Each structure stands twice: as C-alpha cells, then as structure tokens.
Amino acid sequence: MLVLLAFIIVFHITSAALLFIATIDNAWWVGEEFFADVWRVCVNNTNCTEIDASYKDYSTVQAVQATMILSTILCCIAFLIFVLQLFRLKQGERFVLTSIIQLMSCLCVMIAASIYTDRREDIHKNNAQLYSLTVDGRYGYSFILAWVAFAFTFISGLMYLILRKRK
C-alpha cells in the first residue's frame, strides 16, 4: 500500500509540474523566427512583447491564461486536500473531494488547450502583422505538455475516485 501511495503522490506532483511548465514557459506556438505563448511573443530571441489589452484577440488569450492558472491552482489544492484527507478519513472511505477538484483541474486545462487549438490562427495573425512574420509554425512543447497534463490530471482524478484507504 505504501508503494501505491508513493506512486499516487509522485503522479500528482508530476501533473502539477507539467501544468506549471505549460502555463509559464514560452513555447505554445513556435516558428522559424519567433516563439509565442499566452503571455508574450518573442522574435529572434531578443524582441519580446507582452500580450496586453491592446492586443487584437486579447479576450481569447485571457481566457486561455485564466483557465490554465485555475487548472494549476486546483491541482495544487487537490494535492493539499489529498494529504489532509489521508490523515483525516476513516479507513475504507474514498477521496471524493480530492477527485472532484482534480477533475475540475482536468476540465480547466482541457478548456484552455481547446480554446488555443481553435483560435490559434486568429491569435497569431496579429503577431504576423506586427512583426512581418508568417503565421506558419508548429505547436511547441508547452502546448503538448498542456495536453499531457490533461491526461495526467484525468487519470489522477479517476485514481482518487477509485482509491480507498487501506492498511
């Protein structure tokens, strides 16, 4: 049982780390001359511009920012509640509250990545016009990590739902 508990804790911490990296790092959309995320756009690794209210599609970017931050916060809260429930729940009870919060985190990261996938072209047209760049590029590793974090938080949420406290 101790090995299972250690695996669950490591899995949850890995999920949180993936969410932090995907939220913070600047590699959601990369091209030959630029890389961009939901916070800023960098051209030639030197000219970085923050995305602010003057940005054309700012409300879409803001929705992605908010849901990624919320997902990261919910994942951390779920871990803290899991640790509290580990010592407070009676033997044989399930970690339902932890599971619900972790699945909400999963939903938030899915919403953020889905919005970005759907609106990516609109978001980066503004960049192309500002810097005389092509919109051509590819999804960066932060975007891929967001989808991996979605899978990890979903599996983690299901594990908590199924998990019972045993001796």
Score class of each variant (00 low, 15 high):
Leu2Cys: 06
Leu4Ser: 13
Leu5Thr: 06
Leu5Pro: 01
Ala6Asp: 08
Phe7Ile: 03
Phe7Pro: 02
Phe7Ala: 05
Ile9Asp: 02
Val10Ile: 01
Ile13Pro: 02
Thr14Pro: 04
Ser15Leu: 07
Ala16Glu: 02
Ala16Thr: 04
Ala16Asn: 02
Ala17Met: 09
Ala17Ser: 12
Leu18Glu: 09
Leu19Trp: 08
Ile21Met: 12
Ala22Ile: 10
Ile24Tyr: 11
Asp25Tyr: 14
Trp29Gln: 05
Trp29Leu: 03
Val30Ile: 15
Gly31Asn: 01
Glu32Gly: 00
Glu32His: 01
Phe35His: 03
Phe35Ile: 00
Asp37His: 01
Asp37Met: 00
Asp37Val: 00
Val38His: 04
Val41Tyr: 06
Val41Glu: 04
Cys42Asn: 02
Val43Trp: 03
Val43Glu: 04
Val43Arg: 03
Val43Leu: 03
Asn45Glu: 10
Asn45Tyr: 14
Thr46Cys: 05
Asn47Tyr: 13
Asp52Trp: 12
Asp52Gly: 06
Ala53His: 07
Ser54Arg: 13
Tyr55Val: 12
Tyr55Arg: 09
Lys56Phe: 15
Ser59His: 10
Ser59Ala: 13
Thr60Pro: 00
Thr60Ser: 01
Gln62Asn: 06
Ala63Gly: 10
Val64Phe: 10
Ala66Lys: 02
Thr67Asn: 04
Thr67Pro: 01
Ile69Trp: 02
Thr72Gln: 05
Thr72Pro: 04
Thr72Asp: 05
Cys75Thr: 10
Cys75Gly: 07
Cys76Thr: 11
Ile77Phe: 00
Ala78Ile: 00
Phe79Gln: 00
Ile81Gly: 04
Ile81Asp: 04
Phe82Ser: 00
Phe82Gly: 01
Leu84Val: 14
Leu84Lys: 10
Leu86Gly: 08
Leu86Trp: 11
Phe87Pro: 05
Phe87Gln: 09
Arg88Ala: 13
Arg88Phe: 14
Leu89Thr: 05
Lys90Thr: 03
Gln91Ile: 05
Gln91Gly: 06
Gln91Ser: 08
Gly92Ala: 04
Gly92Thr: 02
Glu93Thr: 08
Arg94Trp: 03
Arg94Ala: 04
Phe95His: 07
Phe95Ser: 06
Ser99Cys: 05
Ser99Pro: 04
Ser99Gly: 10
Ile100Ser: 06
Gln102Cys: 11
Leu103Ile: 09
Met104Gly: 11
Cys108Asp: 14
Val109Tyr: 14
Val109Leu: 12
Met110Tyr: 13
Met110Val: 15
Ile111Glu: 11
Ala112Ile: 13
Ala112Asp: 08
Ala113Val: 15
Ala113Phe: 12
Ala113Lys: 03
Ile115Asn: 09
Thr117Asn: 11
Asp118Ile: 15
Arg119Phe: 15
Arg120Cys: 15
Glu121Ser: 15
Glu121Asn: 15
Asp122Met: 14
Ile123Leu: 03
Ile123Ala: 03
Asn126Asp: 15
Asn126His: 15
Asn127Gln: 10
Ala128Phe: 10
Gln129Trp: 12
Ser132Pro: 06
Leu133Ala: 07
Thr134Leu: 01
Thr134Met: 01
Gly140Leu: 11
Tyr141His: 15
Tyr141Pro: 12
Phe143Gly: 10
Ile144Arg: 04
Leu145Cys: 12
Leu145Pro: 07
Ala146Trp: 05
Ala149Glu: 09
Ala149Gln: 08
Ala149Ser: 15
Phe150Val: 13
Ala151Pro: 13
Phe152Gly: 09
Phe154His: 08
Ile155Thr: 15
Ser156His: 02
Leu158Gly: 07
Leu163His: 06
Leu163Met: 05
Arg164Ile: 07
Arg164Pro: 03
Lys167Asp: 09
Lys167Gln: 07
